[in-house]
């Protein structure tokens, strides 16, 4: 076996490893969905509260949570089913997103409804969980932007925790800033990076 043959084998291995890594990159679509769904959720609640339709708030929150959970499940299931390549980071990250989402439903919705604590604390817990989800995702995907997203979320949680007496529109705007800075912008960057790698199609 001569030098050229060995170099050819090494070249094959490098090329295939690089291809597999590129083709299994995270598209960012799930984060875009989560961010958009949460923004819609917050805006709807702000509108209802603004119009003083308080009796509609809880049914709207329940309906949106259920719809988002079902839509999120189908998005993930469809992506995984159609994926040509499965990776451990993606699998771990899906588990992190799932458990954080479940925790958000409990802390942001179930516990306040059962009067365990006041509604004003639910966005604080939501922001903390967003931070955990994003920071962990940043580590899993080696995407440093998500570290900043996590930190922004935690900073937002602190702001909201210590301004509990402020009105909902003020806290609603704080949540929207966290969602846009923490989810939408990084997800859009990730999606652009994914497309620049030559992924113009759904996975």
């Amino acid at each position: 076996m001569n030098h050229d043959q060995i170099q050819q084998e090494i070249s094959i291995m490098k090329k295939m490893v690089e291809k597999a890594k590129t083709d299994s990159a995270e598209s960012g679509r799930l984060y875009l969905f989560i961010g958009t769904a949460c923004i819609v959720y917050v805006v709807v609640v702000m509108i209802l509260e603004g119009l003083r339709l308080f009796s509609w708030t809880l049914p709207a929150m329940i309906a949106m949570t259920v719809v988002c959970a079902i839509a999120g499940y189908f998005i993930v299931a469809r992506e995984e089913r159609k994926a040509q390549v499965m990776t451990w980071p993606k699998k771990i990250n899906r588990a992190v997103i799932f458990i954080c989402s479940m925790a958000m439903v409990l802390t942001g919705f179930v516990f306040p409804v059962t009067k365990l604590y006041a509604w004003s604390l639910s966005p604080v817990f939501a922001a903390l969980l967003f931070g955990i989800m994003l920071f962990t995702s940043g580590a899993i995907y080696e995407f440093p932007v998500f570290y900043w997203s996590g930190l922004i979320s935690w900073a937002g949680a602190c702001v909201m925790a210590f301004t509990q007496n402020s009105t909902f529109p003020v806290r609603g705007v704080a949540i929207l800033i966290i969602l846009i800075a923490g989810f939408i912008v990084p997800a859009a960057v990730l999606n652009k990076k994914y497309k620049n790698r030559g992924h113009g199609h759904a996975s």
């Binding site: 291995m13 295939m16 490893v17 291809k19 597999a20 890594k21 990776t87």
Partner: peptide
């Protein structure tokens, strides 16, 4: 060799 190079990088293909 190419197949194994891919499969060692991902969980499945």
């Amino acid at each position: 060799l190419a197949i194994l190079s891919i499969l060692i990088t991902v969980e499945g293909a």
